[in-house]
Computed example of a mutant assay.
Amino acid sequence: MTSDTFRNALFSLQSRQNLAAASALAATIVVGAVSSAAEPFPANQPFSTNEPAVNTSFDLSADNPFSSPSPLLFHTPAFDIIKVEHFQPAFMAGMKQQLAEMETIASQKDAPTFDNTIVAIEKSGALLTRVRNVFSNLTSAHKNDALQNIETELAPLQAAHSDNILLNRRLYERVARLWDSRESLKLNGEQAEVLKQHYESFVRAGAKLNDEQQARIRSLNEQLSKLETKFEENLLAISKERAVVVDDVKELDGMDAADIAAAAEGAKERGLEGKYLLEITNTTRVPVLSSLNNRSLRKRVWEASAFRGLGRDGGIDNRPLILEIAQLRAERA
């Protein structure tokens, strides 16, 4: 996504969830299980999971693919049945569900323990994690106008959701009590690190600030979520606009046949039949530069990449956004 638009303060929790999802997907690819005709996980090969096997979603139709864990191997997303219209309802239900789970944790009468607080937080948001992992990967690799519109609308909502968790004083107090007594909890190395990450996430998000300061933090996060999403939208538009069109295949000397075919297909998709399109990727240097022998074409590609923050003829300019984002981030820090 882009903005995967949750704040950096939730990075520790999300990175572990995303790593688990990525590992599962990689393993699935290795065994050849990812395909549009993938079979449900065989009944004689039980798969252990912490996710609920039944639909526990909030206000989410049971026919939404995200309402329960995928039956495919390693819960690989069922891309053949996931549609654009499934994302927003799943996000809304997922955020509502996770906030309810956090409220249950925060309102407990029992004294905080690693299990009833940290483990409970770790296990929260199963629905939101399912939809977010799929959506963020799609918007990173295959964004279209429909997904971009959803991303734009969800950005401030997800920022507010993050704040509602990390600025929850009762939730923070439970985590802080565990942190303060960590030496007596007899935690192993992994548990100690998880506790540390959660405590630091709350503190860095502003859990210890007063009401006025927290209100300002919420405002900054909302503004940043919108600006960062707009920046990514602009970057995508500029990258498409600055893609280099080549008329003569001879100019592509040095590229292998597969890359030339891909360039021809890319041009065809844009209505440029018979031409070749070299797309600008968001890297320090466009990979194709290492194989092109034509100096003039290399220059065109390099210039298109070097100025991908600016649209042609001044149409789109990301520089004011960069400045505003930097100023707001500096204030938040």
Rank of each mutant, 00 (worst) to 15 (best):
Y276V: 02
L278T: 00
L278E: 00
E279L: 09
E279G: 04
I280K: 05
N282A: 12
N282E: 12
N282S: 10
T283V: 14
T284D: 15
T284Y: 11
V286H: 09
V286L: 09
P287I: 03
P287E: 03
P287M: 05
P287Y: 03
V288N: 00
L289N: 01
L289D: 04
S290D: 14
S290F: 06
L292P: 03
L292H: 01
L292Y: 07
N293P: 06
N293E: 11
N294Y: 10
R295K: 15
R295H: 11
R295L: 13
S296C: 01
R298M: 10
R298F: 01
K299H: 09
K299L: 14
K299W: 03
K299Y: 07
V301Y: 02
W302Y: 13
W302H: 08
E303D: 14
E303G: 03
E303V: 07
A304N: 03
S305I: 00
A306G: 00
F307L: 15
R308M: 11
R308E: 08
G309V: 06
D313Q: 12
D313C: 01
G314T: 06
G314Y: 06
I316M: 04
I316C: 00
D317G: 01
N318F: 00
R319E: 12
R319D: 10
R319C: 03
R319I: 11
P320K: 03
L321P: 07
L321E: 09
I322Y: 11
I322R: 12
L323Q: 14
L323H: 14
E324A: 10
I325K: 07
I325E: 05
I325A: 09
A326S: 11
Q327V: 10
Q327I: 08
